[in-house]
Amino acid sequence: MWADSREALQDLELGSCDRVLDVGCGTGELTRVLREECPGEVVGVDADADLLSVAGPPVVRGDATRLPFADDAVDLVVCQALLINLPEPSVALAEFARVASDQVAVVEPDNSAVRVESTVDDEPLLARRVRRLYLDGIDTDVTLGARTATLFSDAGLDVVSTRQYDQQLWTAPPYSEAALTAAQRKATGVGLADRADVFTGTLDDDEFDTLRAEWRSIGRTIIEQMGNGEYERTETVPFFVTVGRVDEA
């Protein structure tokens, strides 16, 4: 992500920041981008110490809803694909506003609007069905991206801008190990089986078995096309970069 364009990040005003927090930084995907764009210090924050070891210093272990920083400790607080995984994203956003002296920015997807194109004719439709069932079965709002501006207003942040950034994930020959593994997981049904608990509220056992059989069939067709060097797939995930300014009062 961000390899093709960083235009959607321009309203973060990174060039004028002395200190930035990347909350829920994970392995540091966004952290590294921020460090390239910001002349000041960019600190990665995450609750998982193992992930922080990959992100690289400076890092701080901490909870997004209870950040171990004083009020107004940094110029900017940023997160990417974090709020969609929290049961109460507004609590984290209020904490971001407490710690930031100037701006808060979030980069969040709308997973209901993901688009799939594939050389396997039935894959886009089945992927859409599975995604809808998944969205209906999880406890957090993974469609939040396009509506984060409302959360900002509720948190007392003045919305500066919302920009859409479409992340595109391509699968084409020569196939990466990750792509080959993903195809194998489809063909064996392991991917769906790993998330079976998510579907229990929307499908009975027979319906889930039918869905998994369709998923496995798609996977076998993908592997066949890969063997012939014919398989291509594009997945487009819309992310929304919302920037808000902290009320000086």
Rank of each mutant, 00 (worst) to 15 (best):
V241H: 12
P124V: 03
G40L: 07
S176R: 06
L67N: 01
T181Q: 09
A100G: 07
E214I: 07
D154L: 10
D194Q: 09
S90C: 12
V243W: 03
G26R: 05
S16Q: 13
S161F: 01
R19F: 07
A178T: 15
F208D: 08
T140E: 09
R195Y: 00
A70F: 05
E214D: 15
D102F: 04
A179K: 05
D136S: 10
Q167S: 04
R147C: 13
D110G: 04
D209R: 11
V77D: 08
E123A: 04
V42Q: 07
P68T: 06
G24Q: 09
L192W: 03
T148D: 01
D206F: 12
Y231V: 02
E214W: 05
Q184W: 08
M226W: 03
F240Y: 15
A64E: 08
D209I: 15
S53R: 12
T181G: 02
E224K: 11
V99Q: 04
G40T: 14
P238H: 09
A193G: 09
R32L: 06
K186Y: 03
R245F: 11
I223T: 05
E177R: 04
E235D: 14
V190C: 03
F96W: 10
V99K: 03
R195C: 03
V107L: 06
V120A: 00
V160A: 06
